[in-house]
Design a binder for these strands. Structure first.
Lengths: 100, 100
DNA sequence: ACCATAGTTCGATTTTATTCGAACTATACC
DNA sequence: GGTATAGTTCGAATAAAATCGAACTATGGT
């Protein structure tokens, strides 16, 4: 089977509850904060006390909710925060979450 | 056993992840929206397609995270959104959630 | 071709949440 | 005291999430 990155929802498809749920976990929130601080990052750079299969699960939750976008770049997957989409869809939300 | 309303966290004790989690459920988010729109409300006025034991569970999650405060008034429990505490602790968050 | 690296997917297990009925507490009213 | 109302608590069942190792895909380098 080929690798399928789960389809990322369009801006309009983003659900408030799904976004809040994705952000309601310490690990995922940590990832989001780091993406906000450092910009595009590969999955592997996150120092999380979990095996990569677990990390991969958390990235999937972030992607499926629309919080993070992922693109392939050679051997690695580069993740970005969908700040602009989030801001358009849920104005002020991401900023408030990142502040806290 | 006496009825214990779970202790509501102080402003400082509120956790971002717990608040986001509490808000990440359609039923609870509906309750929060209605409280925001109509102010203090008894548990019973919410028209939710769930038995009262389930509703009670959702109110508990809202209370324990700090989103809602509950006071007794005779026979009923009156719930309020802790808007001010939330705004102080997580500026902009509640407003952004209610907009979406 | 071979090996290493990056990350996903699968499958099984464990943990955590939700759900609901039934029993309970507390208050109000007659 | 008895009855009704409001909502909680308990306990058990179900559902959903998280966790992790092992197998896998894809790419890059030698």
């Amino acid at each position: 089977m080929p690798i399928f990155l789960p389809k990322e929802p369009s801006r309009k498809e983003m659900l408030m509850t799904a976004v809040l749920y994705a952000l309601s976990d310490e690990i995922r929130l940590g990832i989001v904060r780091q993406l906000a601080a450092k910009g595009e990052q590969a999955c592997g750079v996150f120092e999380v006390d979990r095996p990569k299969s677990s990390l991969s699960h958390h990235f999937r939750v972030l992607r499926e909710s629309g919080v993070v976008s992922t693109r392939k770049d050679g051997k690695t997957l580069l993740n970005t925060l969908r700040s602009e989409d989030l801001e358009k869809r849920f104005p002020g939300l991401l900023k408030a979450v990142l502040k806290g």
